[in-house]
Every structure is written in C-alpha cells, then in structure tokens.
C-alpha cells in the first residue's frame, strides 16, 4: 500500500488521472473510484451504474458521454465516473443501489462500480499509471 497524504493507494492496481482505479483479471477490468476521489466527493448518496452491455471508450482530455461509466452523487455534488479503458460492461455492483456509502467506506473493495471486458487493453494501459505514480500525482494536486 502506498500512501499519499491521508489517502490510500493500493499496489497492484492501475490508476487514471480522473481518479478511477482498475484491477485486471486477464481482459476483465474491475473499476472503481479512488480513496482520494471518495474523500473529495463527501458522503456518497447515490450511484448511477452503467447498463450491462454498454460500450464505453477510454477517457481522454476531451471528455464525451461515450466515456462515462455513470455518476456518483454526494450531498452537494454530482460527478461523472469516466472509463479508464475502452470495452463492454459485463457486470455492475448492484449493491451500491442500496448501499452507496460503500464508495466511501470501501472504495477499493466493496465499493467497486463495474467490470468491463477491455477491447484495447495493451494499447490503453499505457495511458494509466501505477500506484507509485498516482501517489506522486496526488501530491501535486
């Protein structure tokens, strides 16, 4: 586990600069938002999940709807969750509909958002960063 200030940044995951994490199992990528993101959001009260079968594109600087996995809503904010990889949604964490607070209490485990079947994994992984690099990135924010 790497620490960036008060924020946890587990090893073995890939990270986007939009504060999503990716855990790979072959071509299947489990995705959630990071400890930093949940802390900045505050109390999460609603999670809009993507539909299974939806195709998403990897997030770039010019963000579009096709890059959105859904949204996370806190008491005073609503923030889009962007897809760290292109692919097709295979599974979503339906428990979040009843217990959105899992994003706050367990961002890297029970608070996962979806699993997607990555369509361009090898090329797109280059856009993601590892735990050490993400921790450094957070220190500069």
């Amino acid at each position: 586990m790497v620490k960036a200030g008060n924020y946890d940044v587990p090893d073995g995951l890939y990270y986007s600069r939009e504060h999503e994490w990716v855990k790979l199992d072959g071509k299947l990528a489990r995705v959630g938002v990071t400890d930093y993101a949940q802390n900045k959001l505050g109390d999460v009260v609603y999670v809009e999940l993507p539909e299974v079968g939806k195709q998403v594109k990897q997030v770039t600087e010019q963000k579009t709807k096709e890059m959105e996995l859904g949204a996370v809503e806190s008491i005073k904010a609503v923030s889009a969750v962007y897809s760290p990889l292109s692919g097709t949604i295979k599974e979503t964490n339906a428990v979040l509909q009843e217990r959105p607070e899992l994003i706050n209490t367990s961002p890297y485990n029970e608070g996962w958002i979806c699993v997607l079947d990555a369509s361009a994994l090898e090329a797109e992984l280059k856009q993601l960063i590892d735990a050490k690099a993400y921790a450094e990135y957070l220190k500069k924010l």
């Binding site: 009260v45 609603y46 809503e73 008491i75 509909q97 009843e98 959105p100």
Partner: peptide, 10 residues
C-alpha cells in the same frame, strides 16, 4: 435542499 434521501423515492 441537499439533505434528502436520493435512493428510493427520490
């Protein structure tokens, strides 16, 4: 206001 349930019945 912001302090209201956002899941069921929202």
């Amino acid at each position: 206001g912001c302090m209201r349930p956002r899941s069921e019945g929202r």
